[in-house]
């Protein structure tokens, strides 16, 4: 059950999108998000979606996997669309008691649904094609100018890397502890809310204890290897940008401009 949760859902591959410099990928994703938010007509939104679809096809990520990433936001989509359909004033096309559906409501909710789906797909595409470690590397590099204002960028990136690294470990550990307590007759599925909350103690305490133990061991191991933070540290994986990266970035900016242009023309 717990194993189905995917965070850092990297899907290994060797497509053009996979090979792009992660720094550029982050920026391009940012541009895509800006595109989707600034579009104020269906055509503008369509341009953003086309850009997304091109990147998606190039990435060779299976469509099924993409759908899976949309599953958790289904409630949000339903919620916003229901709100929009029923509570927007305008030309009524259907009425039942206090509920009424308007043309404007349908339009806005369709617009919102496309926008939300595109946003999630866009950011999922980033995490599907970039391993978490590379991603934090790239974030560190992108944030490195902030070192000037004494922001511990390297330390923050390291913390993120370690946190990501330990998510699967802790999930596995939770699974194991849950099984062990179930074997001792722990009952986690029935009872009142308070009882169920109490039933979590036998799981949370061992989990915390082991998290602390792991942290201590890791700190010791890092110290043994003379880890001392970011200063003067070289990297195993150097990030290189190539023509393709600049091309992709350029393309995204062209699409963005197109969206802005359409906004002016339609507005």
């Amino acid at each position: 059950m717990l194993k189905d949760i995917t965070i850092g859902q990297y899907f290994p591959g060797n497509s053009v999108v996979h090979r792009l410099d992660p720094r550029f990928k982050i920026i391009i994703t940012g541009v895509l998000i800006a595109m989707l938010f600034s579009a104020d007509s269906f055509i503008g939104l369509g341009v953003g979606v086309i850009f997304l679809l091109i990147s998606f096809l190039l990435s060779q990520i299976p469509f099924k996997l993409m759908l899976k990433s949309l599953k958790p936001i289904v409630p949000i989509i339903l919620f916003t669309s229901v709100l929009n359909i029923f509570f927007l004033e305008g030309v009524t096309i259907f009425k039942l008691g206090f509920l009424k559906i308007t043309v404007e409501g349908l339009r806005t909710s369709a617009f919102m649904i496309i926008r939300i789906i595109a946003l999630i797909m866009g950011s999922s595409l980033l995490t599907y094609t970039t391993s978490p470690i590379t991603l934090t590397d790239a974030i560190e590099r992108l944030l490195s100018p902030l070192k000037k204002i004494k922001l511990p960028v390297h330390e923050l990136a390291m913390m993120m890397t370690i946190a990501l690294r330990f998510i699967p470990t802790l999930i596995e550990e939770t699974d194991k502890i849950m099984s062990a307590q179930k074997a001792r007759g722990a009952d986690m599925e029935s009872g009142s809310l308070l009882q169920r909350a109490k039933a979590l103690t036998p799981i949370l305490i061992p989990l915390f204890v082991s998290a602390f133990r792991r942290a201590e061991e890791l700190a010791l191991a890092m110290e043994c290897r003379c880890y001392q933070g970011g200063d003067g540290r070289t990297r195993l994986r150097q990030l290189h940008s190539s023509g393709a990266d600049y091309f992709a970035l350029g393309l995204s900016i062209v699409f963005f401009d197109l969206v802005l242009l359409l906004n002016c023309l339609m507005g």
């Binding site: 001792r184 007759g185 036998p202 204890v209």
Partner: peptide
């Protein structure tokens, strides 16, 4: 599960109570 008791690998990592007595009591109490 009461009929078939299972001790996992490294079972010491599932201990959680304040005292040894209470921890051993967890199963029988359940």
């Amino acid at each position: 599960r009461f009929k078939v008791g299972l001790v996992f690998q490294y079972p010491e990592y599932q201990i959680f109570e304040e005292t040894v007595y209470k921890d051993i009591a967890f199963g029988p109490k359940n």
